[in-house]
Design a protein around this nucleic acid. Structure first.
Length: 364
DNA sequence: CAAGCGTGGTG
DNA sequence: TCACCAAGCTT
């Protein structure tokens, strides 16, 4: 399938050097490594997508304590899965994880289909690299991975030009990743590749003096390690404006609404959000909200990956409510156990973050 | 294929 | 303070 690449060194030599390095300097005590099961590896790989190890570990521990098995995950309400994901970001991962667990229960006898990359990638949230990581680590079958660490390492070793997210560049890196993948010690090799990229062939300040490949690395030979991998072409961050309404009743409870099932903060709970003053006025009228006193709110901005959100300085707080219709619920900041981001609000911007409720309380 | 999707760390 | 981006996948 993949064309034969031009290697920098023979595959068996590459594997030997990497595994020697891994035995000495690799990470051998990550939570998902012991006990190592397909389920635990799967959950960890999903959490680790675009997310650092140190961030993931506490989320992984909590998740495993609550959902120790695939069956437990499949049986849970989505709200509860999102609850444990709150603060981790990329919430489609949680929705897909939940859905995939149910599909595995229905169609694969409650087990992950780890017999092939194709079967795994058929599940929502599992792409080629994640499938390879799950298979290699949980079954020891030969399967390649190509995550950010491997992309960066191989781009340097081979001085691969171009942004590694570009399909043509990615194809070439997949061919290299596949070429170097061994037939044995797949779990160790896979972990070794990720550890190598994360701790030695780092994005900035790679430790080339200690690298087992510094005699064959093209980027190092050219003195150009900083050039690889090339960064994504920059684009101007668009700014979106929005109004977020902070309503609270006399008990200090806050009105939250569940967001649409997909898109930004999909399925989570947040302050009601409006495109403009017009929409806000409509909502206030529909809900018979009669604020007696409005308090000003400073203009806030929140930067997302692809845009900057500006929260306009509207009067968005009121002390008295005549009535609010359906579509949301009251959240008591003083009794936060059901809320994911329950920690005492440090800054106002955090109040705009999404929430996930374990269950939906009754309407006000 | 390009855009959408979060949050926290880093220099 | 701020640009940059990390164990990617979906649409």
């Amino acid at each position: 399938m993949t064309e034969m690449p031009t290697p920098r060194l023979a595959a068996d030599v590459f594997q030997q050097r990497l595994l020697d390095w891994f035995d000495r300097h690799g990470r051998h005590d990550l939570p998902w490594q012991s006990p190592r099961s397909a389920y635990r590896v799967w959950v960890s790989e999903i959490m680790l997508q675009q997310t650092q190890v140190t961030t993931v570990i506490p989320y992984f521990e909590r998740f495993m304590a609550r959902f120790p098995t695939l069956e437990a995950l499949a049986a849970a309400p989505q709200d509860e899965v999102l609850h444990l994901w709150t603060g981790l970001g990329y919430y489609a991962r949680a929705r897909n994880l939940h859905k995939a667990a149910q599909e595995a229960l229905d169609s694969h006898g409650g087990q992950l289909p780890t017999h092939s990359v194709e079967a795994l990638t058929a599940l929502p949230g599992i792409g080629r690299s994640t499938a390879g990581a799950i298979i290699a680590q949980s079954t020891g079958q030969r399967a390649a991975i190509l995550d950010g660490n491997v992309k960066r390492s191989l781009a340097r070793l081979h001085a691969v030009a171009g942004w590694t997210g570009k399909p043509a560049v990615e194809r070439r890196l997949w061919a290299l990743a596949d070429y170097y993948t061994p037939e044995t010690r797949l779990a160790d090799y896979t972990q070794a590749m990720m550890d190598f990229g994360a701790t030695l062939c780092k994005r900035s300040t790679p430790l080339c003096e200690h690298c087992p490949f510094n005699d064959v690395c093209l980027a190092y030979a050219q003195g150009e390690t900083k050039r690889y991998p090339e960064s994504k072409p920059k684009k101007v961050l668009p700014t979106r404006e929005t109004i977020m309404l902070l309503l609270h009743d006399r008990d200090g409870r806050v009105w939250l609404e569940q967001r649409p099932a997909s898109g930004l903060w999909g399925g989570l709970w947040s302050l009601p959000q409006f495109d403009g003053q017009e929409r806000l006025n409509d909502w206030l009228a529909d809900n018979v909200v009669r604020p007696e006193r409005l308090s000003p709110m400073p203009c806030l901005t929140h930067t997302f990956s692809h845009f900057r959100l500006a929260i306009t300085p509207q009067p968005v707080s009121c002390d008295r409510l005549q009535g609010v219709r359906e579509g949301g619920t009251w959240y008591d900041p003083a009794h936060p156990p059901a809320i994911g981001l329950a920690a005492p609000v440090k800054t106002l911007i955090n109040q705009l973050a999404p929430f996930s409720l374990k269950s939906t309380p009754g309407r006000a």
